[in-house]
Amino acid sequence: MTAVHPLLEDFEVPAHARGGQVTLNLYDHLAAYVPRRPGAHLRISSDRFGLETGVDRQLEDAEDSRKRLRWGPFAKVYRENDTSAFKKRKVIRPDGTIDWIVLRPEFRQLLADLAAGVIDGGIFYDLDRLVRQPRDLEDLIDIVEYVKRPVTGATGGRMNLINDNDRHMARMMCVMALKSSEDTARRVARQHLSAAQNGIAQGRIAYGWIHKGEHKGQLIPDEADLVVRIYEDFLSGETAYAIAKQFNAEGIKPPEARTGSSNMINKMLRNPRYAGMVAYSGRHRVGGKQIADGWSLVLFDDDGRPYLGTWEPIIAPKVWSQVQFELQRRRQKAGTSPGKTGPAPVRKYFLTGRKASPQGSTTTRTSASLHVLAPF
């Protein structure tokens, strides 16, 4: 035992303050910490039917790792079922700035809980299940470095982010996983473009056609008549709000909503699929789609002609085009610049209740002129 310096005689140090030593092998020391309230992170990119069998299997492997490490029972399990760690979404922040981020509430909750001490460590199934974007990985690493608590993988060499060498390896693996996701996205986007150019509908089937089953894509006459009515009423001078209000008053149930809205009506008015034209807004589009412009959804060939779909149209292309010009005219009259949304005024004759058509004459409904019964 070394001699006590005279200045330290009768000098008492409380027990909780006796851990101020240093070591050149810091990360081994930190990795030796045994969490008592660890968390488990599980993620599956696609689970169409919500069975969660994939994340359940991951939880079994995470439990095995927890027991092997002799950690305490999981305090929280963060399930990201049917959740992409790659696809970004446009987010408008309260100050008006725009960012593109991956929306992962459970992952963000894990970060918050680790930083706040709700959990004191973590086990993830594998790095490619944990993150696909370097930004997310760096956010996690920042917190691990701050709280100095282990976060380790159940598979893939059991990487532990408390170790600086493992962190650098994780960064390289994350970039490789990102490249793999981008390669897959490119191939899928090419397939979607090819399908669109061949007239195959992409995405959800719009209101007016059967959505699923062996008759998927076939026309529903009653719904098609309502679509026709929407276009007629709009061309006769009605606003989207007035049309939605009238439909609600009549008890007409809108697609996938309790009540109709002007936003829903405007989307239907801009949808080129109703005119039998292919809509495409994928990654190969040179110009981005505009919020209030249906033309930016139409897919054109090299000669400037719209691609036609294989489905039965409801509205004649000429009528759909007239609606787009009328939408543009109303936006400009309201002082709304192209590509933005805004109120659309209705022109009325002075001292009368009659609304004017785009050509300036009063109109009446003419269903036969709008409803196309066969592909053109």
Rank of each mutant, 00 (worst) to 15 (best):
M1N: 10
H5C: 09
H5P: 05
E12L: 13
A17F: 12
R18H: 11
G19C: 11
T23C: 10
D28Y: 03
H29Q: 08
L30Y: 09
R37T: 12
P38E: 07
A40R: 05
V55D: 02
D56V: 10
R57H: 15
L59H: 13
E60A: 11
E63K: 09
R66I: 10
N81D: 13
N81S: 10
F86A: 08
P105G: 13
A112V: 11
G122M: 05
I123Q: 02
F124C: 01
R129D: 01
V131I: 08
R132K: 06
D136T: 06
Y146N: 14
T152K: 02
G156A: 10
M169G: 02
T184K: 12
R186F: 11
R190T: 14
H192T: 01
A196L: 07
G199K: 10
P221M: 09
D222C: 05
V228C: 11
S236Q: 06
K245E: 15
E250F: 09
R258E: 15
K267R: 07
R273E: 13
A279M: 11
Y280Q: 06
G282E: 02
H284I: 08
H284E: 15
R285E: 03
A292W: 00
S296A: 03
L308W: 05
I315T: 01
P317Q: 11
Q328N: 15
R330Q: 11
T341N: 14
K348V: 11
T352S: 13
T352P: 10
G353V: 03
R354N: 12
G360F: 02
S369P: 00
L370H: 09
